[in-house]
């Protein structure tokens, strides 16, 4: 057996202390700033306590940003899971081992790209005049203009498609690997009972993978919070405020438009409280 050793203490304590400092200092300081009225242009400030928060709930642009964020979260998470499960099952069904490896390699590429790169690639592709993704539309309609990024109705979906391009394909690889870990007997048994292919997956394999699939969805929910890069590069929150998520609005309040750091920080604190509570509860349920 292992003897008593100082190793756990020397290995763990410094790292945890540094992590605690690095995470708690900004977190607590965010709250402090949110209770003041700091602005980038001036150095003086005073304590205004909760008035930033009170202002937020009367700010219609903030309420819009909450709604856009919720839409973004739902659209990207649902679409990612649908694409992932669909393509994962298809690979499992019709691709041999070598083809599977090939697809897996291809499907990992988009998620490795910096979000900024992915956003650029698709911003060009969606260009109404010269884009490769809008070319089929121009071809079919004989030169009509389709500009998905500048229409309020489609902009959010156009940006979300890039997110799904990155994560949906990547998760398809994971769904395939999960399917490969399943024991073959239940699938064989269902096949002997003349179950159809889709029935086997709908009633046997996917229910068996319920727990890992829920964890996967959890990961995607966390990653979907990081939408800023895509939106910043592709639409800057526009047209109007159609794609202005919370982090985009906080950034523009704090930096671009008015330099109201405290106001932006109040927003960030609300986001932080909401996400930490939601995800802690979800995580405990996933683990249980």
């Amino acid at each position: 057996m292992r003897r008593r050793s100082s190793l756990p203490v020397t290995f763990l304590v410094p790292t945890l202390a540094i992590l605690l400092v690095l995470s708690m200092v900004p977190t607590l300081y965010a709250i402090v700033i949110a209770l003041q009225n700091r602005e980038l242009s001036t150095t003086g400030y005073s304590w205004v306590w909760f008035s930033n928060f009170a202002d937020l709930f009367l700010d219609r642009r903030f309420l819009n940003a909450v709604w856009v964020s919720v839409k973004w979260e739902i659209v990207t998470v649902v679409a990612t899971m649908v694409v992932a499960i669909g393509l994962g099952v298809l690979m499992f069904e019709v691709a041999g081992p070598r083809l599977r490896n090939f697809y897996c390699l291809l499907f990992i590429i988009p998620v490795l790209l910096p979000r900024v790169s992915a956003a650029f690639v698709w911003k060009f592709a969606y260009h109404p005049l010269y884009g490769i993704a809008t070319y089929p539309y121009r071809l079919i309609t004989g030169g009509l203009i389709f500009d998905p990024l500048s229409k309020p109705g489609t902009a959010l979906f156009a940006v979300a498609s890039v997110d799904v391009w990155q994560w949906g394909l990547f998760f398809a690889v994971i769904v395939l690997k999960l399917l490969e870990t399943l024991p073959p007997q239940p699938i064989e048994a269902a096949r002997l009972d003349h179950a159809r292919r889709w029935q086997i997956h709908a009633y046997v394999t996917l229910p068996m993978l319920k727990a890992p699939l829920i964890s996967l969805m959890f990961v995607k929910m966390i990653e979907s919070l990081r939408s800023f890069d895509l939106i910043y590069v592709m639409t800057r929150g526009g047209p109007g405020v159609a794609t202005e998520t919370l982090d985009m609005y906080a950034f523009s309040q704090g930096f671009i438009e008015s330099g109201k750091v405290s106001y932006a920080s109040a927003m960030a604190v609300l986001m932080m409280i909401a996400t930490v509570i939601t995800f802690t509860m979800l995580w405990k349920r996933v683990q249980a």
Partner: peptide
């Protein structure tokens, strides 16, 4: 070296990922 905090430590490390980047970036800038 399992101890009774192992689960909490893992959760703490994961929970750092929940923090919205804006919430970290604004105070850090100041």
């Amino acid at each position: 070296y399992p101890n009774r905090f192992a689960g909490d430590i893992q959760f703490f490390v994961l929970s750092l990922r929940f923090l919205p980047p804006v919430a970290v970036a604004i105070p850090l800038m100041v």
